[in-house]
Design a binder for these strands. Structure first.
Length: 634
DNA sequence: GTTAGGG
DNA sequence: CCCTAAC
């Protein structure tokens, strides 16, 4: 039922009409407007997530492999609280009968990736996976789905609800290597290929601090114990594991079904109690709202997907291509034997008690290393290193954030029928897993969505926009793989090891005072996912200077004019942004230099800010007095 | 659509 | 940056 709702919503997500704009006075607060059923999804998620966290209280902690993760402890609760205040405090939520994974949900509020796994049987496995989930600092993790299941079904099925949002942020590495850490998802084997798409699409890319992703991802993963054994270099490999789990009918009823990867925005509909709803609203709500477009947003904000406005130029990313090569490890779980067998090809088979011919088996895919090796960026010589980093981040983010559509190729042939089961597609048979490829494509198609306006000049990708962004090659299993497997699970691991070149064309964007690095990727699919938060774009020094200049001339109450004067050619800076930036500048100028963060602003500039602020605030007071006096006198 | 302000 | 109220 839940699945159905999600799917239904997702299928029409783009047609969800924007909330009619009502007079401000009539616009109530979100929380009061929101209907109960709009909160249901997260209610349930919160419930199950809470149970997982509680369960994992007993599990071992993630090794400190990232500096930021050093503080990670078994008290995942505290870690999350410290590192992400906008994360749902899952561990504070009621305990259920299930282990709930919430990788994305925690790693990134934009994406929710919550998986439900069986509770007791996977406890140890969760531990082991947690250990292998530490992320590389520059990794990319993007999770576009979460899964859930009813408590009564936790012992068997794993289902997931792809969460909205092909979003991505990336940390440019030294070689632009972007590696998602392990993201594991499980998929009913009799799910169709669309489900597999969703799973693969869970290779989320996110720029959140690695530690966060690490700990959070770990907590969110329904996991299997084998990872630890062969994951020799967790820091060097980002892995996505796709585990397919086939089980009895109970699962299907309790598990949500993944939506197609193409639909990145849809809403879960759950029912939950007000207690959890409160939790959600207070903590997770903000991020979730961004993600959960439509009803959940339900605000009529033009920044949400409900509106048709495409606000930033980050959408301008020219299509690029890159390939991914994967190594596939295959593990089977025949019955009546325990141990690891190696087939002639070198694939490792884990054999564990299960009836031969039983339909209970799983497929697990692992994707290691998500690398974008080549980016072509035109950057002025006077660019700073910091601006270069930001540019690279923006470019890569643009690539990712536009949304990735996953395709499945079997023996080079694209499997287009999403409704086919894996078995029907001959994916689950085990004898052709080496011939499975995945393609990643930008979600350019989303721009053709009715109601979504593509700014002119942003659509220069043309037909090229649909070229595969990535190709993932499944190859030979790693012979050295040794794994302990959960019973009745067969696994396939895919390793993305090589990446073909991806070429990106970046175009400079007009910017105040010829800002050195106002370079924005040009990508048709650059539009952020519905309801998705915009990419953070710190103001550069030239921008700040331009802002100060404009405010000095126009004052602090004419942000639209300021925009027109100094940022007219900068699409991604709205007058609200300028107003906000001025606010932060005033604050920055008013605090001690030691307390300031981010790229330092010259004190001289800050002094001008204070002077201008004082002057114009005085002017406003005077004008206010004058008008007040005038009106009274009249 | 703008402005102001809280988060 | 997001969101909302108020205009």
């Amino acid at each position: 039922m839940v699945v159905r709702k999600r799917l239904d919503y997702g299928s029409r997500v783009h047609q969800v009409p924007a909330m009619p704009r009502v007079p401000s006075s009539a616009r109530g607060k979100r929380s009061t407007r929101r209907k109960k059923d709009e909160m249901c999804a997260f209610d349930l998620l919160a419930t199950v997530a809470g149970s997982l966290l509680v369960d994992q209280e007993n599990s071992s902690s993630v090794p400190d492999k990232v500096a930021a993760a050093s503080t990670y402890s078994r008290k995942r609760k505290s870690v999350k609280a410290e590192q992400r205040d906008d994360v749902l405090p899952l561990n504070t939520i009621g305990v259920g009968n299930c282990i709930v994974g919430s990788g994305g949900a925690i790693a990134s509020p934009r994406q929710t990736n919550i998986c439900l796994a069986e509770n007791s049987s996977t406890q140890n496995e969760t531990d082991s996976v947690l250990e292998s989930l530490t992320l590389k600092p520059d990794m990319l993790v993007k999770d576009s789905l979460f899964s859930c299941t009813k408590a009564s079904n936790c012992d068997h099925g794993l289902g997931r609800i792809p969460e909205s949002g092909a979003s991505g942020i990336c940390h440019p590495g030294s070689a632009l290597s972007l590696e998602p850490n392990q993201v594991q998802v499980q998929q009913p084997i009799d799910g169709d290929t669309a489900a597999l798409y969703s799973l693969v699409s869970s290779v989320d890319l996110d720029g959140r601090p690695p530690a966060l992703v690490s700990s959070d991802s770990s907590s969110g993963m329904p996991l299997f114990s084998h990872d630890k054994d062969h994951n020799t270099s967790p820091l060097c490999h980002a892995e996505v594991q796709l585990a397919a789990d086939r089980d009895d009918d109970e699962n299907s009823s309790g598990c949500t079904h993944p939506c197609t990867a193409g639909n990145k925005s849809y809403m879960p509909h759950y029912t939950g109690d007000s207690r959890i709803r409160k939790l959600y609203a207070s903590k997770f709500g903000k991020a979730a709202r961004n993600k959960m477009c439509g009803e959940m947003s339900n605000k009529g904000s033009k920044q949400n997907f409900c509106g048709n406005k495409i606000s930033t130029t980050r959408q301008k990313v020219q299509r690029a291509m890159f390939k991914r090569k994967k190594i596939v490890r295959r593990h089977f779980t025949p019955s009546s034997a325990k141990g690891i067998l190696t087939e002639p090809s070198g694939a490792s088979f884990s054999v564990e008690g299960q009836n031969p011919g039983s339909e209970d088996y799983n497929v697990k895919l692992r994707i290691k290393s998500f690398t974008i090796p080549e980016l072509f960026i035109e950057i002025p010589e006077n660019a700073t290193v910091g601006s270069l980093k930001r540019t690279v981040m923006d470019v890569v983010t643009s690539i990712i954030e536009g949304g990735l559509r996953v395709g499945v190729l079997l023996e080079g042939k694209n499997i287009q029928d999403d409704n086919r089961t894996l078995r029907q597609a001959r994916i689950s048979q085990g004898d052709n897993l080496d011939n499975i490829d995945f393609t990643l494509e930008c979600e350019a198609g989303q721009y053709s969505t009715p109601g979504i306006r593509i700014p002119e000049g942003m659509d220069f990708l043309g037909a090229d926009a649909m070229k595969p962004l990535a190709m993932i090659k499944c190859e030979e299993p790693c012979p050295e793989t040794k794994a302990r497997y959960n019973s009745h699970r067969s696994l396939v691991e895919m390793t993305m090891q090589e990446t073909s070149a991806i070429s990106q064309a970046i175009v400079p964007v007009a910017s105040p005072k010829s800002e050195a690095l106002a370079i924005v990727p040009v990508c048709k699919s650059k539009r952020p996912a519905m309801g998705q938060r915009r990419i953070r774009r710190p103001f550069s020094l030239p921008e700040v200077e331009a802002l100060v200049d404009a405010v000095e001339q126009l004052g602090t109450g004419r942000w639209r004019d300021v925009k027109k004067l100094a940022f007219d050619n900068t699409d991604h800076r709205t007058y609200v942004d300028l107003k906000d930036k001025w606010k932060t500048l005033v604050h920055t100028a008013s605090i001690s230099p030691q307390q300031r963060r981010g790229e330092p602003v010259p004190q001289g500039l800050l002094d001008r800010v204070l002077v201008a602020q004082a002057y114009w605030s005085q002017q406003q007071q005077l004008s206010g007095k004058a008008s007040g006096q005038g009106s009274s006198s009249c």
